[in-house]
């Protein structure tokens, strides 16, 4: 089995802010991490490799420093990593990104055909959940999103049985391989990487593929290949603050009573 995992380097979202004066992103000092959902995708691929045998290859698109997420994946137990990096890719939206990744995966498949492609359910910087489906659509393979459990892979018949997480329910699916899966965090728990993996990762130099190495059309990548554009960014609007009912510390009982009277009087809570 050949498992391919798409990973993305993202800024640690809890630390990104907008400068209210210039409306620009303050990225200064914000650490980069592997997208947390992608980490679970790598973990799952490695577990499946341990169970069914085979190989795990991670692929990422990003600037040269995105090498770090490939090395992180090697720590988790991936065998190999490829970084798609070219200045022409900069400014790609989800459509262009899925195109570049697809072209990278196709090139990879020339060498070693894949059985399963994994993605995180979404990236925490954009939260779009579009690149995974985009790759599946382009490769014309089944797309199975929000996977929370892989029950079984039939290596002989090339089929997979898995559970998808839907609103308030889970769906049991069987599908033909190759297929693309996007995964949720509940799927597995990340294991603490053993030292030999850490050493291997520290030594690892991923292959870097540019527009020279993969076949891409110029008008499908970067800004030219991106139908969407950011018109503006701004700090989230604040809802108008309301009324503070005084006395909460000195006389909580009486203050609570006042609040309840207001809620009932203004019919916010119906008096049954």
């Amino acid at each position: 089995m050949h498992f391919v995992v798409c990973v993305k380097q993202v800024p640690d979202s809890s630390e990104v802010r907008v400068d209210p004066e210039t409306n620009t992103l303050i990225r200064e000092g914000v650490p980069s991490i592997i997208n947390p959902y992608d980490a679970h995708a790598v973990e799952e691929a490695v577990r499946l490799k341990e169970k069914y045998g085979g190989k795990v290859t991670v692929i990422s698109m990003g600037p040269p420093q995105a090498e770090e997420v490939i090395r992180k994946s090697i720590q988790f137990g991936a065998d190999e990593g490829i970084l798609l990096s070219d200045r022409k890719f900069a400014g790609s939206d989800t459509l262009a990104t899925s195109y570049v990744l697809t072209q990278g995966i196709k090139k990879l498949a020339e060498r070693e055909p894949f059985d399963l492609i994994f993605c995180g359910k979404q990236a925490i910087d954009g939260d779009t959940a579009q690149v995974g489906p985009g790759i599946a659509a382009r490769l014309k393979i089944p797309q199975l999103t929000y996977v929370l459990n892989i029950e079984e892979i039939n290596v002989e018949e090339k089929t997979i049985k898995l559970h998808r997480k839907l609103e308030g329910m889970r769906e049991v699916i069987s599908a033909k391989l190759p297929a693309l899966l996007t995964v949720v965090q509940d799927l597995n728990e990340l294991r603490y990487a053993p030292l030999p993996n850490m050493i291997r990762a520290a030594r690892y130099r991923p292959q870097v593929w540019t527009t020279e190495n993969i076949e891409v059309e110029d008008d499908k990548i970067g800004l030219n290949g991106s139908p969407t554009a950011v018109r503006k960014i701004f700090a989230p609007p604040e809802r108008e603050g309301g009324e503070i009912i005084p006395g909460g510390q000195e006389n909580p009982e009486e203050t609570a009573r006042k609040l309840v009277e207001r809620l009932l009087k203004e019919e916010i809570i119906a008096d049954k």
Binding site: Y192, A193, L195, P196
Partner: peptide
Amino acid sequence: LLITETVVEDLIWDNHFVVGVKTGRPQGDV
């Protein structure tokens, strides 16, 4: 070789001689 996020917890001794370290990771002796 730089290995980050890894705590060295102890020394490995052999006959009054330090011959390596134990890290906090699985298979962590060096």
